[in-house]
């Protein structure tokens, strides 16, 4: 009564085929990551020394370190955060806690999601037009950071909104029923419980903007500038652009140099991601709902 029929045999065979297909697809997905990382570590690993990280590029960028580019990336990303994080979090709080659910709100939400999909080169041209030319910041750290901030904004908003909405509605109701205003509810209960999610989103966004090249190329990143910027109106080097330059624009570069830059960039990004995962794990273990 319970033995295999020919129908069962056929089902098992089909089941096996699909399973294999999905497995192969997953392997194909992981393979490039593994190959890229291995290649970078083998070829670029030897280039990474303390002199490489802390030194200035010399001899037409064919030798020396990448310190100004590393610092430039850090400046650009942190100044970008200063603009995008407060603005993004405030907008997200308004949209998810205050705005009533009407047509306008839905259009705004849709626009924000679409903004996240705008190609970075378009952001770059917008930054060039708006910040460099119209607002007359010139090609500068300020203009480049603002461009990165505009790019990061929709992601910050979406991440913040999602983590705010993940805080159970019952907590808000409990607060209101005790006579709390909306802001008291947000400050005392909603934000403290959403902060881990917001932080995770922000850090992931940092890792993404750190690698962006197009938006900063037109607005503030310099091809070669062997000293550190003195103000936000100066240009700066940046890791991502530096990688592009040494890989394609400069002759006679030793092979290990671009790999080294790439490895450093990836390590920066992975460090950020690890940090964000760490936060998430830490905060999630505290939650009890």
């Amino acid at each position: 009564m319970f033995s295999k029929t020919s129908q069962n045999v056929r089902n098992d065979r089909i089941e096996g085929r699909w399973r294999t297909l999905f497995l192969v697809m997953t392997a194909l997905l992981i393979l490039p990551v593994v190959i890229i990382l291995t290649l970078l570590i083998i070829r670029g690993g030897p280039a990474i020394t303390w002199e490489f990280i802390s030194g200035f590029p010399i001899k037409g960028m064919t030798q020396g370190g990448i310190f100004p580019a590393l610092m430039g990336t850090i400046f650009l990303v942190s100044l970008g955060l200063v603009f995008s994080v407060p603005l993004g979090i405030a907008a997200a709080i308004y949209l998810s806690e205050y705005a009533s659910d009407n047509k306008l709100t839905r259009i705004i939400n849709l626009a924000i999601i679409n903004l996240a999909g705008v190609p970075s080169i378009v952001h770059a041209l917008f930054g060039l037009g708006a910040f460099v030319l119209f607002m007359e910041f010139g090609t500068s750290i300020l203009a480049a950071s603002l461009t990165l901030a505009i790019m990061a904004l929709p992601v910050v908003i979406v991440a913040t909104k999602e983590s705010l909405e993940a805080v159970p509605y019952a907590f808000r109701e409990a607060c209101w029923s005790l006579g709390a205003t909306k802001w008291q509810t947000i400050r005392k209960i909603v934000l403290p419980n959403a902060v881990s999610g917001i932080l995770t989103g922000v850090i992931l966004e940092v890792s993404r903007t750190a690698g962006e090249t197009a938006p900063i190329m037109f607005t503030g990143a310099a091809f070669f500038l062997p000293f550190l910027p003195e103000s936000v109106y100066d240009q700066t080097m940046a890791l991502s652009l530096h990688l592009f330059v040494v890989a394609t624009q400069v002759p006679n570069v030793p092979e290990s140099l671009p790999y080294g830059v790439a490895l450093l960039l990836i390590m920066l990004v992975l460090l950020m991601n690890a940090l964000s995962i760490g936060f998430r794990v830490r905060f999630r273990s505290k939650k009890k709902w």
């Binding site: 159970p168 019952a170 907590f171 109701e173 409990a174 607060c175 209101w176 029923s177 005790l178 006579g179 709390a180 205003t181 209960i189 419980n193 939650k287 009890k288 709902w289």
Partner: peptide
Amino acid sequence: KTQVRSQIGMVFQRPNPLPV
């Protein structure tokens, strides 16, 4: 409204203590 809500207490269907 906040005066109304603080002086008229409410208990909900699912216990909803605050996460503190």
